[in-house]
Design a protein around this nucleic acid. Sequence first.
DNA 1: TGTACATCAGTGAACGCGCGTTCACTGATGTAC
DNA 2: TGTACATCAGTGAACGCGCGTTCACTGATGTAC
Lengths: 190, 190
Amino acid sequence: MRKSRAEAAETRKRIVDAAAREFRRKGIHAGGLASVMAEAGLTPGGFYKHFDSKEQLITEASEAGISTVINAFEAIASRTGDEEAFKSIVESYVSVAHRDNSMGGCPLAGMGSELAHGGEETRAAATQGFNDLVDVLATSFSRSRPDGDRSEAVFALVAMIGAVTISRIITDPAASTLVLQQVKQHLKAI
Amino acid sequence: MRKSRAEAAETRKRIVDAAAREFRRKGIHAGGLASVMAEAGLTPGGFYKHFDSKEQLITEASEAGISTVINAFEAIASRTGDEEAFKSIVESYVSVAHRDNSMGGCPLAGMGSELAHGGEETRAAATQGFNDLVDVLATSFSRSRPDGDRSEAVFALVAMIGAVTISRIITDPAASTLVLQQVKQHLKAI
DNA sequence: TGTACATCAGTGAACGCGCGTTCACTGATGTAC
DNA sequence: TGTACATCAGTGAACGCGCGTTCACTGATGTAC
């Protein structure tokens, strides 16, 4: 049954990716290890050949999820003009598509309040991810507004995260969409 | 063992209040019914004499928690001049005190991502609470800026909620406090 | 290069535990006459 | 107003269940000579 090192490394990635999806969709507590392992095509027991605990998986899944968002931000920024980079990022984050795709979305929006109750290492990883996101956003912002400072990116990002979180709570889809539009509009006017 | 109607009604309130504190502090999933009942001075079994399910308690605890925030907002607004009402509310919400008192704080910040995964009724109650908060905020905002509309209050509130949520994730207290200050500064400049 | 042995990724059943929920019971409260 | 009975708030043990975690085992991979 032993697998080669390369295969084992790929298995590990598959577990982290499955967890990232599971936790963002169902929440950290509601997402179970057996379900994550099954989605990765494995049986539950094998989990501990790769990780010490669920907490460690939560940490890595958060990192992986945020990395995806950072890459998306950078991709948008690189194919957009200076004037539009920041606005394009805001538009893709504060969107109905993001709201309806919690599985592939930003962990800070999908599991923010649960991350706040997490262990030191999990919170440290999420903090790092937040700061990285702020950096990307600040860079894109300064391309259209050279006088802008980092605090504007911090402000924009917490509003973006709050907007997506709330839009997922609101029961009426039209009202939810309206909140996203309103926040988007104000962010683009910063 | 039977209690009078008045006593039973008070017991019910005690359970809801205990739950509101427990869920905001530990999170919805991590907070247990046995622990809530113990905090209310009762044994676990009695829970179902007052509620149909944990889900119902979550709904009522969210409502109760948001009502507290609304009352606090209105109290601040009523004892503050027109020019300062909005800013005072922002200052009390986006604060270190609120960040460090998740037990008594806003449910939308303390359990936002978990509410997004909640049942229809829970989300409807949270939606109602969000809209009520927007109303209070919009009223206070329009006192200093008669041209302001409701969308500005929506924008401000999601930023406030996002800021408190993120400030609870950030591991370094000074960095966390800085985020709160930066968001506060931008909100007051709206 | 070939052989013998150690390693360890993955299996799948089992573990203890705490969860939400149920239940038979108690006895004070509320109601009917 | 007093009495007899029904109601039901609260008790505390027990239930089934799914969770994170452990474990003995398998057999292909990696290593040493």
